[in-house]
């Protein structure tokens, strides 16, 4: 059965704690690049937390906004790829096929959310840190782009489990690492094609908005605005 995976991020719940950021690193074998490379803007975070300052002291406000790949229905990163490494898979996810990627970085240029990251060199782990690596996820080499996959390995594992048990996937049965860790339960993940799912219900909320909605990318991530 086909699914259309989507996410809802409630900005009224999000506290900006960045548990999602580290959870993503741990789940997806994202390498740390070190101070020198990070200062050159080469740090990789498939999900990041943006902060928007408003006002001047003492009347200051901050709004946090976690930004993973928005998994657009009409993704600007896809048509620009000369090798079809960046494409939309059958479940509606903007996938990156590392084998095909030749590192033109056109997709990174095209993405309005800057959700794509380039491997400027081979990632490395000081031994024995490599023992933390998740065997379910590829290690990307130098010269390829990488991005949020909605923890595709977890989707496949859950589907395989359900298949082995001869049943349908249940809503909330699994979630990407960021959603699973989120201490304030600001993130919800599920099937947008299932009208009963929590994520469908919430994405129809009055507070629901899309990031850069006017660009016409039709993201599958819905933000619920803060109420203050």
């Amino acid at each position: 059965m086909a699914h259309r995976w989507g996410m809802v991020i409630d900005l009224d719940r999000c506290t900006g704690c960045e548990a999602c950021v580290v959870a993503c690193h741990a789940e997806n074998n994202i390498a740390t690049v070190g101070e020198k490379q990070a200062a050159m803007g080469r740090a990789i975070h498939w999900i990041r937390v943006e902060r928007h300052w408003e006002g001047e002291f003492p009347n200051v406000r901050v709004r946090f906004q976690p930004i993973p790949c928005q998994q657009c229905d009409d993704a600007p990163c896809e048509p620009v790829c000369p090798t079809y490494a960046s494409y939309q898979n059958a479940q509606g996810l903007n996938a990156q096929i590392y084998n095909r990627c030749i590192g033109t970085r056109y997709c990174a240029n095209a993405c309005p959310y800057t959700g794509r990251y380039f491997n400027w060199f081979n990632p490395s782990w000081d031994k024995p840190l490599q023992l933390q690596l998740n065997p379910d996820v590829s290690i990307r080499e130098s010269g390829v782009m990488e991005k949020c996959t909605f923890c595709f390995q977890r989707i496949l594992a859950a589907e395989a489990n359900a298949q082995a048990e001869k049943r349908q996937l249940r809503d909330g049965e699994f979630s990407p690492a960021c959603v699973q860790s989120c201490p304030s339960e600001a993130m919800v993940f599920g099937d947008l094609d299932d009208p009963q799912s929590e994520v469908s219900r919430l994405s129809r909320s009055d507070r629901g908005v899309k990031l850069l909605g006017e660009v016409g990318t039709f993201p599958k991530v819905t933000y619920l605005t803060r109420e203050s």
Partner: peptide, 9 residues
């Protein structure tokens, strides 16, 4: 106790 670097190279 450990040394060396692991990389996909």
């Amino acid at each position: 106790s450990s040394s060396g670097v692991f990389s996909p190279a």
